[in-house]
Structure formats: C-alpha cells, structure tokens
Design a protein around this nucleic acid. Structure first.
Length: 425
RNA sequence: GGAGAGGUGGCCGAGUGGUCGAAGGCGCAGCACUGGAAAUGCUGUAUAGGGGCAACUCUAUCGAGGGUUCGAAUCCCUCCCUCUCCGCCA
C-alpha cells in the first residue's frame, strides 16, 4: 500500500511513477479524500479534547462537593452530550471516508524503483547475465515426454482425482520431487536461512498483507465456508509471520526459507503450457523471504537473487537473469529479477524464480516495523523463489536426458535422490 | 462439538465508573558509583494519527466491534482468541 501522506501531499509523484508501469491514474479524487479525512480528524479530535475537558471537570466538581444532581453539573452534562452527538456524526463520516480511501489505496500497485528499467511488457525486460552453457541438439525431448517415458507422473489420473492442471507423481518422480525440496532447504539453511513450514491455508488479512487481495481474488482458491484460502505462495504466510510486529533493528535481516505447496487458479491461462510441469494449479516451491532494514534492501535484493541462483548453479542448470521492466513488474514489487532456466527440450529459457524487493509496500499493508533507538519505521520485505520445484524437475529432465533413455542428475542431488540417474523402469 | 476459566504495556502483574496510557516488578537504555565489572542508586523506556521549526501538544488505543454514561481498562451486548476438562480425531 502507498503512503496516505504521499497521496495527500504529492499525488503527482505517484501518478508519474505508476505511469512508468503503464497505468494511467487520476489521483485528484484520492487526494481530495485524504485531505478531507485529515480535516475531519482535526475537527473531531479538537471536539473530543473539549469533551474530555468537560468530563474531567464534572469529576473534579463532584469530588469538591458539588451536587451531582444540581444545576451546575446538569449544565456541564448537557454540554457534554451536545459534543458527544457532534463527535458521533464526524466520526461516522470519517470512518466511511477512511474506509473508502483504504479500499482504493489497496488496489494501487507499488511504485517502481528508480533503477527499474522502463518498458511496457516482457519484451522490454533486460537481460543482466547468463550462467552455464545451454545444451542444444536435435531430438532432445521435452520434459513431459521424458516423464511419460519414465513413468514419473500421471496427468489423466490426476483429472480423476482433482481436475486438469494437477499432477500425480510416482516412483522416481515422487522421489525426485522430495529430493529437490530437501536439497534446496539444506542449501539455504546452511547459509543461515531459518526454515519455516507455515500453514497452507491463509486468511484474508494475510492475503491482503502481501498484496494478493483485494485485487487478485480470482487468482486464488477460496474455502467456501471459512475465511481461508489456499496459499498461492509461501510469501503470503511468511509475510504475516510478523504482521503487526515491531522488530528491533539489530535483529534484521530476518531470513526465512519456507517450503510449501502453492495453489493458483491460473485464470486466463487456458491453453498455455497445458502439458507437463510448467503451469499447474498445485505445485511445490521453496521460497526465500527477507525482512530487511529499510536502508539495506537493495543489497538484500542482490543477495537474495544470488541465493536463488546458487541453487541453479548447484544443480548445474544454465540460466539467465532478467531485470524486469516497469511494465512487467508484479503488483507488490519495486524491482524484480527473474531467473530463467534453460530447457534443452523446449530450446528456450523459462522462468523458474522471481526475486523481488517490495520496499515498505507489504510492510505498510501488514504493519511490520523496525525500531532503532527512538525511531520506528516500516521495514522492507523481499521474496525470491529458491526454487519452484516442478519447473526445476522439468529442467533437470530436459537438460540431463541421455541417449540410453536415462536422465543424469547433477552431483549435488545424488545423495538426496540416492542414485546418479533416473532409469527407465 | 459440550462445560468452565481467562485475554491489561517487551514480559509478569495490579487496577470494578472519575483527573488511568494505566501502580509495582522484571527486562532494556542512559547516567552515577567502579581500575573494569557485578551489586546498588537515579532517570528514562508503547503504538498510530494530527498540529508545531522545535521544545512540545492534541486525539485514539487495556483482544475486536457496538452500547450505557458528562466520564469506561472497569458496566451491558456481539464476536474473536487462549487455556483446562469431556467427546471426536491424524
């Protein structure tokens, strides 16, 4: 959420920065509301001050011996009552206004970082660097074909169990998924990340806190009878881990690594990536998350990205890093580096991780602050996939496929998987 | 799901209508004492919003929301949460 004060005092800045995202917003209405809200607050609180004064005076006079039923007290009472009614009216108006203002503010995305490259869509994302040598060649299979051949998964039975875009893993496939989760968690915890296994059902406040609500309700699965949703990413529960908290500055950064299944409705993506492990309603992910000191979130962004890259390097998967342009930036992000892994079968890079710095955007929505001496400020949050498990498996299958039909696994994964390769059964 | 108890500041804990943002303790910070530390003493120590260059000041907040009252941490209603016992259960 954007700072209400900024809306009041510098709406032009907001309009300009949101313009970089390709959004045309007229903030005069919002500014007016914010100003009016403050006027109401001023009126209300000075009336309340007067009311408090009268209330105290009644107490003082009665204690001093005034007749509680006498004229003197009755007059004060009447004054008090008059003020009370005025306050009630103002308060009501103010509350409504504040509600409408907040509602609208919650739908505005974060302002992009000054360093974020300008651009209108993903074609203008900027490649920052590449790592590894992409494997190319004729006859390289795509991962679903390999998975099918090796009996790693079953999509048709998954439709019977759930519906399309779900997958059931079997045998070596299930084992590989488990190996990847453990491998990644170990990699990150060895670097000092604190492992956390959060609830998968999250309430509306949590989704609002990290930015999925109110705007993206149709992206998540909702439980009909409860205020609970299936989490679309561990970013949601982990953000709310410290909702409404004040964290001492010397404890920052708090770095978490959370494994969780993720659930997404993928509305509006029918027909895209319908085969394989790329786009599913349910997938596993290991997520990195930082609660960072507001003065050091840029370094933190570089670090969290490096920590995500380290997984790809450990798994010997070639990738490239994209600096997302303003037009492709996610709702809560100020700046994002996407990691795209090479898929040898598809012959293309595909997103496997997204590392974002959100500034104080989520912290304001979630009220997460840090205290240093006497000053309390909103802290900064960052998140990065480290990594999406299903897509990692896809990359391993495509990049590790061998002539004999087996799939060779990277060294780092072998102890977890218990073998150096997947073999035809 | 049934019965009961309870939710007060970073923590513990007092406070059943009046000047209470809240005693006391712990913790923490600063100062004094010390060669240094401990112990001790003194002082300070919530959050948000508004006004002010600032010192400072006003308002709100004692689980949440409503109500009674000139005045609510305290009384009433609704909801949420926690704990204990019973039932059910991986």
């Amino acid at each position: 959420m954007l700072d209400q004060r900024l809306v009041r005092e510098n709406p032009d800045l907001i309009a300009r920065e949101l313009g970089r995202r390709g959004l045309e917003v007229d903030l005069t209405g919002l500014q007016l509301m914010a100003q009016q809200q403050r006027n109401l607050e001023e009126q209300r609180s000075s009336l309340q001050a007067e009311g408090n004064r009268i209330g105290k005076e009644v107490g003082v006079r009665i204690k001093a011996g005034a007749d509680p039923k006498g004229e003197e007290v009755a007059a004060l009472r009447q004054q008090g009552n008059a003020i009370k009614h005025k306050v009630a009216v103002l308060e009501d108006e103010e509350k409504q206004l504040q509600g409408r203002l907040r509602e609208q503010l919650l739908t505005l995305p974060n302002l992009p970082s000054p360093d974020c490259p300008d651009g209108s869509d993903e074609t203008e994302n900027q490649e920052v660097r590449r790592w590894g040598t992409p494997r190319r060649g004729d006859g390289l299979q795509e991962h679903w074909a390999i998975a099918d051949r090796l009996g790693l998964l079953d999509t048709e039975r998954s439709v019977r169990i759930a519906q399309s875009r779900f997958v059931t893993l079997f045998g070596q496939g299930a084992r590989l998924e488990r190996a990847l989760i453990n491998c990644m968690l170990d990699l990150h915890t060895n670097k000092g990340y604190r492992e956390v296994l959060p609830p998968v059902l999250v309430n509306s406040a949590s989704l609002t806190g990290s930015g999925q609500l109110p705007k993206f309700a149709e992206e998540s699965f909702r439980c009909a009878d409860d205020d609970l949703w299936l989490t679309p990413t561990a970013e949601v529960p982990v953000t709310s881990l410290h909702r409404d908290e004040i964290i001492a500055a010397d404890q920052l950064p708090l770095r978490y690594v959370a494994y969780s299944p993720c659930f997404r409705r993928e509305a509006g993506s029918y027909g895209r990536d319908t085969r394989g492990l790329i786009r599913l309603h349910q997938f596993n992910k290991v997520e990195l998350y930082w609660f960072a000191h507001p003065d050091h979130s840029e370094e933190a962004h570089a670090q969290i990205t490096a920590d995500a890259e380290a997984v790809l390097q450990a798994l010997e998967l070639p990738y490239r890093v994209l600096d997302l342009c303003t037009g492709d930036l996610g709702f809560s992000a100020r700046r994002t580096y996407d990691l795209e892994v090479w898929l040898a079968g598809a012959g293309a890079y595909r997103e496997i991780s997204s590392c974002s710095v959100c500034g104080d955007f989520q912290a304001r929505r979630s009220s997460i602050r840090t205290k240093e001496g006497k000053t309390t400020r909103l802290l900064h949050t960052l998140n990065g996939s480290g990594l999406a498990i299903g897509r990692t498996m896809a990359a391993l299958l495509e990049n590790g496929q061998q002539e004999d039909g087996s799939v060779l696994l990277p060294e780092a994964l072998r102890p977890y998987f218990g073998s150096d390769r997947l073999r035809p059964e």
